[in-house]
Design a protein around this nucleic acid. Structure first.
Lengths: 158, 158
DNA sequence: CGCAAGTCCATGCGTTTGCATGTACCTGCC
DNA sequence: GGCAGGTACATGCAAACGCATGGACTTGCG
């Protein structure tokens, strides 16, 4: 990057129209990346009949201590409106992957618990999914991968 | 091709478990960033009654020369299955933002054309949306923004 | 030409989504 | 205690989704 800039600070300055352009470019690039990868992952044959959202719930539960979480909290973690999650949990419960329990501390509350079958299913899918992620990002140098991770996190205000 | 590698490349040829972990971290960070921003954008009061996907179609059309594109091509550009887009276009057409025309070169084909009202609407929404994007990424230094853009593009194999 | 195979878009149909709302419960104030 | 207001989850309902399929047209090959 030794070439002198044809146009001074306008481009790298924090304000001005170029700044908005840069932000829009970043958003579009991130959006496109996410959409493309999501599509490829969805096409993977590793989901054993459940959708990405269903898996995300199992995955999130598997990260909770005890494998259980309040429905409302889960709703925030998986970025799904509460009524949608409520019905999604209906389906998971019907399939025996998850179980609803009363919250002893708050009788309005419902605790969603991962069953043994659910935990098992999550591990199976998770392993294959992780492999697919690595495969789909194989073209990136490890250092770029780390930088991408850092910047994506920082973009959310740290 | 230049000099052969005198030393096995530990850094860029990393194939260990850490590599998968790094890829998964990157995916999760990107996914989270996209989901969070998307949520904020959706909450913006700039959409004038139409959804993000509808806007994406208008936006994509506005980038095409002549403001028109074949339905199938559009379907790929906006990452929406063809039947879903077909019905989405039904709605846009009903609202007068878009118009269907026969493709003179292929009578199976349908060309989706942005109407004047559609182009107008796209510009209004687009301006406010761009401002919102800039606002939501305001915490990022311009250089990081550029790096994020570059890496997100490179991640797709480039 | 004539027909088989392929492409493009629309539509039937069952599922999922999300908003608005309902019911049960908790909390704070009197 | 008792009531007002708030919170947590479920459900009615209309809209949107996507898969599978259908009808129209094009292409390639004998």
């Amino acid at each position: 990057m030794g070439t002198p800039p044809a146009v001074p600070d306008e481009v790298t300055a924090d304000r001005g129209p170029g700044r908005t352009r840069a932000a829009v470019d970043a958003w579009e690039a991130v959006f496109r990346l996410q959409a493309t990868l999501l599509r490829r992952f969805a096409a993977d044959d590793v989901w054993q009949g459940l959708g990405l959202r269903e898996y995300d719930v199992l995955h999130t539960l598997s990260l909770q201590p005890g494998g259980h979480a309040r429905l409302g909290r889960l709703s925030e973690d998986v970025y799904l409106p509460q009524p949608s999650l409520s019905r999604l949990v209906d389906r998971l419960e019907r399939d025996g992957l998850v179980r609803r329990e009363d919250d002893p501390d708050d009788r309005r509350g419902v605790v969603v618990v991962l069953t043994a079958a659910g935990a098992q299913r999550q591990r199976e899918i998770g392993g294959r999914h992780a492999a697919s992620i690595a495969r789909n990002l194989a073209s990136m140098p490890a250092e770029d991968l780390a930088t991408l991770t850092r910047l994506a996190r920082e973009a959310l205000g740290d």
